[in-house]
Simulated scan of single mutants.
Amino acid sequence: MKKILTLLTFGVLCGCTPQNTSSTLALTPVGYESLAGWGQEDFTSLMPLLRSDCRRLSQLPPETVLGGSESIPYGRHVSDWSNACAALASATDGRTYLETWFQPYQATDDAFYTGYFEPQIAASLTRGGEYQVPVYGRPRNLVRAKATNGQMVNGRWVNGQFAPYYDRAAIDGGALDGQGLEIAWLKSPVDLFFLQIQGSGRLILPDGGQVRVSYDGRNGQAYVPLGRVLVQDGELPADGVSMDSIRNWLEAHPDRMMSVMERNPNYVFFRRDDGDLAQGPKGAFGMPLTAGRSVAVDRSMVPFAMPLWVETKLPYGAAQPVSWDHLVFAQDIGTDIKGAGRADLFTGWGATAQSVAGNLHAHGRMILFLPRQPADSPPGSGAQ
């Protein structure tokens, strides 16, 4: 899903900087007895997820770097997982398996958690009636090239010169007209804006059918948080920025909504995704995301496939946030997820998922589960 790049999170919407954005990861080993709610976890449901992670790892060369800070002693390379994944083949009890083959390390007791979800949006595959807002596929002239600083950037070739790609205002103004790039049509430019923030979504067609569209590139322009714009303009209070407050403001100001949205020049393109709609969209690790079990992380801090124990609070409706202590898996990334102790929880799709994701901005504790190596596996683990 992320290659997703821009998330519907508190940080992306308001441009806020969470307290814990450290660029270093200091790990402290802890015991399982210190994990709040560990004994109440649903270990049976974790086994298929662990096996899916191992299947994905088996598809990669052993030397593949999964990411992660250099302070992580093991788990950064596919080969580091070989023993734990081999033991999983004969494991029957999830709790015993995890306690045998993973060592918990506290990353921080001041992690910052946000959420993202897969929106459901009314759409049509043909233009007509109220469906007048195009969802564009990736333009053929959008290319990547190496900048003078060595980084890869998106842009286009103009008379032999590499130039920035069209920004949001230019695209809204018709820069892509006539190229046949439209893959669907929406009712509202606000719906398109929030679809682009999420990077993936389910289009609900007039006949009740569903089609998923997934991220397929961006124009390369900088992302400007709309919440920050509205706070700077005095339209929203700094403590009143949320998905709902931004959407409500845009819909209440139809004469200004386009000009405000165009102050974020970033633009996302999509492709039709015929994957299984019973599952979530694929994350950057190449696996379908699982609601309440998949998180986006800063890959320079936390490797793909890494299990994380999360202790935080989730908002459900109008009630006070409730404690939420569960094991999740690093399977996605996001532009705004930077630094140690940052994670974005995939909440699924539907009204509840949208509400939780839009209101989740909570601190908590983060524990990394590093796969043990044979030399430090507990007695009786069967390590050779």
Rank of each mutant, 00 (worst) to 15 (best):
S69Q: 11
E70M: 11
S71T: 15
I72S: 13
P73I: 09
Y74W: 10
G75T: 13
R76S: 13
R76T: 14
H77R: 15
H77Q: 15
H77E: 15
V78F: 09
V78I: 12
V78R: 15
V78N: 02
V78K: 10
S79K: 15
S79V: 09
D80R: 08
W81T: 01
A84G: 06
C85N: 12
A87Q: 10
L88W: 10
L88M: 09
S90V: 09
S90G: 12
A91T: 07
A91H: 08
T96P: 07
T96N: 10
T96V: 09
L98D: 10
E99H: 00
E99R: 01
T100R: 06
T100P: 03
F102H: 08
Y105F: 05
Q106H: 02
A107V: 10
T108A: 01
T108H: 02
T108M: 06
D109R: 01
D110I: 00
F112T: 08
T114P: 07
T114D: 03
G115D: 03
Y116C: 02
Y116F: 06
Y116L: 01
F117W: 05
P119C: 01
Q120E: 13
A122V: 03
A122G: 06
A122C: 04
A123Y: 02
A123V: 07
A123S: 02
S124Y: 04
L125T: 08
L125F: 03
T126G: 05
T126H: 02
R127I: 01
G128K: 07
G128L: 00
G129Y: 01
G129F: 03
E130Q: 12
E130K: 07
Y131G: 00
Y131V: 12
Y131L: 04
Q132A: 07
Q132D: 04
V133C: 01
P134S: 05
P134I: 02
V135N: 00
V135R: 03
Y136I: 09
Y136A: 01
G137W: 01
G137A: 15
P139E: 05
R140M: 07
V143W: 00
V143Y: 00
V143C: 01
R144P: 03
A145Y: 12
A145V: 12
A145P: 03
A145H: 13
K146R: 15
N149F: 05
N149C: 04
G150I: 08
Q151Y: 04
M152I: 14
N154L: 12
G155C: 06
N159W: 06
G160I: 03
Q161I: 11
F162Y: 14
F162G: 06
A163M: 13
A163T: 15
A163D: 07
Y165Q: 07
Y165H: 11
Y166P: 05
D167Q: 14
D167S: 06
D172T: 11
D172H: 15
G173L: 11
G174L: 04
A175Y: 07
L176F: 07
G178A: 05
Q179A: 11
Q179M: 12
L181T: 12
A184M: 11
A184F: 09
A184K: 11
K187Y: 07
K187W: 07
K187M: 11
K187C: 10
S188V: 05
P189E: 15
V190K: 03
D191G: 13
L192Y: 04
F193L: 11
F194G: 15
